[in-house]
Design a protein around this nucleic acid. Structure first.
Lengths: 209, 209
DNA sequence: TTTAAATAACTGACCGGTCAGTTAGGAATG
DNA sequence: CATTCCTAACTGACCGGTCAGTTATTTAAA
């Protein structure tokens, strides 16, 4: 009595397929990703993909959306505590981001969005409108308020936001792209800690300022 | 008396083809780029591509190499003046990078390397070994020296280098990926100026430190 | 027994790469 | 200076493999 050749699992399939697709899409990019490969990794035949997704593009979008969606709210929360001193908020924001980047494939999705931004402008748009834009905007807003209270030095709040977030993005990309080809390992959490300390009070030794 | 259907220009062809290929590869990525499209933009027939390049992959590598190569030395020079105070060196480094990013398609190449890093690991390796690694290493070295002289505060020099360069990378990516889909325009030079000021002496107002 | 789920064989468009043929334009000749 | 010859440079139709998407068929399970 051999086990059945396959089982009907309409509930789990979409998730499993998305997971497999995320792997392949991030490894190869959209165009070079093979549906046969995705099906194989999902433990399913190619035809099955078409039971749950209209076509390759539909699957790609589903993958990005499902992986991005959970992130959206998480960071906003970190800024709710806007009564705290700016230093504390910035600290919290950075460590929250680092935590997120540990558990979710932030780097992988970023890589996909960057790599396919030419072929899927609306995908880059989703990323901008729902992730990067709001995050930067939020930060810039916080910074502006803190400036009004005299907590943060003068300067374009948006550029300050880049100063704050840039190293984290660079860290994520380093891990995703360069670490696999021999780049020295990078501890994102350590980066978040040291960067938040450094950026707030300056890279220069106090005696030099 | 009509002008000839084509001209023999063996000297210029490779450059022209590379330029066209850079455009198409950065727009579409490697897999989605069509050789017919590249040939068309280079004002040449598809067969001509094969007179100068072995195959699509050879062309791709040539494009990346030719575009990356000129950059390699440029930044190193900025650090030669290592007798100057660290603040001056950092300033020079950042503004030099911004200048470079204005004139060369740094963002476009970065996008290509990131997007195709899965399919061309050795390309990511070239980028790491010849561009990112040395730059970070150079910066980290400078920082370490400056720390020894008491100019720069304690902390992992490499992480400090991320703090310094991250925002610039983020700026380049923002311009390349998000600005075209509605992201607010970003002035890289302004970013370099403000960031170098800010990061050296701290984001917090002096009264808060 | 019915039907929804899944498969595996199939199709056809598309595109990287080839190559037989064409042309520009310089060199040799008168 | 005109003419002929020669070949590197170039073209574009074509071929064969690949792969997204379809369909006829089989099977699990209600």
């Amino acid at each position: 009595m051999q086990s059945p050749r396959w089982q009907r699992r309409a509930e789990d399939r979409p998730r499993e397929i998305c997971a497999a697709a995320l792997d392949v899409f991030t490894e190869k990019g959209f165009a070079a990703a093979r549906l046969d490969e995705i099906a194989k990794r999902a433990g399913v035949s190619k035809g099955t993909l078409y039971l749950y997704f209209k076509d390759k593009e539909d699957l790609f979008r589903a993958v990005v959306r499902d992986t991005v969606a959970p992130n959206v709210g998480a960071l906003r929360d970190a800024a709710m505590a806007s009564e705290l001193p700016f230093a504390a908020v910035a600290n919290m924001f950075l460590s929250r981001f680092a935590d997120l980047a540990q558990r979710l494939p932030v780097g992988a999705v970023a890589k996909m969005v960057i790599g396919e931004s030419g072929n899927f402008p609306e995908l880059a748009k989703v990323w901008h409108d729902q992730v990067a834009g709001p995050s930067i905007g939020l930060l810039a807003g916080l910074i502006e308020k803190a400036q009004a209270k005299g907590e943060v030095r003068a300067g374009d709040p948006r550029l300050h936001a880049f100063t704050l977030m840039g190293p984290m993005l660079m860290g994520v990309i380093w891990r995703e792209i360069l670490q696999p080809v021999g780049g020295a390992p990078l501890d994102i959490e350590a980066l978040a800690r040291q960067h938040s300390q450094t950026v707030l009070t300056g890279l220069l030794a106090e005696s030099e300022q």
